[in-house]
C-alpha cells in the first residue's frame, strides 16, 4: 500500500529526531562515523518504524524479521535507532565509545540488544544475511531478512560470493540495500576503485535492482513494497549523500569519520533543522 501523507510526515519527523540523536551521540563520543551514519538514516528509519516485524519486549523472538547492518561502522547511527526504539536505554548513548561501554564504534550482537550480527569487518554482512534467510527456509519461518551494505565495502569479494548464493537459492526473503553515498575513507569510490556500472553488476548477479533516491522516504518505501511482493531477490540501490543534512559534511569523504566540538555541534543542529524543513516542504509538495 502506498505511503499516506500522514505516514510520510511521521517518518520524516522520526528520521529528523534520529539524525539529531546520531549527532548528539557523535558529540558525546567526541567523534564518530557520522558521514556514513547520516547517509543511511532514512533507510534505518523506515525499517524500524514501518517494516521490521519485531517486538520491543521480546528482542529474541524467533520469528522476528532480521536486520544485518553490514556497514558496521554506521553503529553511531544504528545505536540511536535501537535506543530510540526501546531495545536499549537511551542513556547508554552517552557512554558510546567510552571504556567498558556496551556500545563502541561497531556494535556487538552479544552486548547491544536488537543487533542481529556483530559487524565491522567489511563484506561480512551479506553472507550472514544470506544465512539467516536460508535458515528461515530450513526452519519453515516466514520472517524477512534485511541487509544494508555500504558502497565502498562492495570492493570486498565476499559480497559477490554472497550475491551468487542469494541468486542460486533465489532468496526473495532477503531485501538488500546499498547505501550508495559515493565515498569511502580515501576518497570517491570511483577514484579509489571503480564500482560503476554498479546496478548492472548486481543485475548480472541475478538481483532485481531498484534504483531510488536514498534520502526520499517515499521512494524507499515504494521500493521495499515492491521487494516484499517480488518472487526474486531485490536489491535497492539507494543513491545517498554522505553526511546528509549537514552542509559541510555532505558529499565530503573527509567526513567518513570526524570530531564534533561545541561550535560545530550548534552549526550541525541548525543545518539539520533547515534540512528537516525542506524535507517537510517536499512532502507537502509531492504527497498525494
Amino acid at each position: 500500500m502506498s505511503l499516506t501523507k500522514d505516514e510520510w510526515l511521521a517518518l520524516e519527523k522520526k528520521a529528523h529526531e534520529l539524525r539529531n540523536l546520531c549527532l548528539d551521540t557523535t558529540y558525546w563520543a567526541g567523534s564518530g562515523h557520522i558521514g556514513g551514519g547520516m547517509s543511511c538514516m532514512d533507510i534505518l528509519t523506515i525499517l524500524y518504524h514501518k517494516y521490521l516485524n519485531i517486538k520491543k519486549d521480546d528482542p529474541d523472538w524467533a520469528d522476528r524479521d532480521r536486520f544485518i547492518l553490514s556497514k558496521g561502522h554506521a553503529g553511531i547511527a544504528y545505536a540511536p535507532v535501537l535506543c530510540d526504539y526501546g531495545y536499549n536505554d537511551k542513556e547508554q548513548l552517552k557512554t558510546f565509545n567510552l571504556t567498558n561501554s556496551k556500545m563502541g564504534i561497531h556494535l556487538d550482537s552479544n552486548k547491544v540488544v536488537g543487533v542481529d550480527a556483530s559487524t565491522g569487518s567489511l563484506g561480512h554482512g551479506l553472507p550472514i544475511a544470506a544465512g539467516t534467510a536460508l535458515a528461515a527456509r530450513v526452519l519453515k519461518k516466514s520472517y524477512m531478512t534485511y541487509c544494508l551494505t555500504g558502497d565502498g565495502e562492495l570492493d570486498e569479494g565476499s559480497n559477490w560470493e554472497a550475491a551468487m548464493t542469494i541468486n542460486h537459492y533465489n532468496l526473495n526473503n532477503l531485501i538488500t540495500f546499498v547505501d550508495r553515498n559515493h565515498n569511502m575513507i580515501d576518497g570517491n569510490t570511483e577514484d579509489v576503485m571503480k564500482l560503476e556500472p554498479l546496478a548492472d553488476k548486481f543485475t548480472s548477479f541475478g538481483f532485481d535492482v531498484k534504483k531510488v533516491d536514498g534520502q526520499n522516504i517515499k521512494e524507499l518505501c515504494d521500493a521495499v513494497d515492491y521487494a516484499l511482493a517480488s518472487p526474486r531477490p531485490v536489491l535497492i540501490l539507494a543513491d545517498t549523500a554522505k553526511g546528509a543534512g549537514i552542509k559541510m559534511m555532505e558529499n565530503n569523504y573527509k567526513w567518513h569519520y570526524g570530531a564534533i566540538d561545541d561550535k560545530l555541534y550548534e552549526e550541525c543542529k541548525k543545518d539539520l533543522e533547515e534540512y528537516y524543513q525542506k524535507r517537510v516542504e517536499r512532502v507537502e509538495r509531492e504527497a498525494k
Binding site: R66, D116, I128, A130, T132, T165
Partner: peptide
C-alpha cells in the same frame, strides 16, 4: 558468514 547467520537464526 552464511553459517554464522544460520546459527544466529537457530540452526
Amino acid at each position: 558468514g552464511v553459517a554464522a547467520g544460520m546459527a544466529k537464526a537457530g540452526c
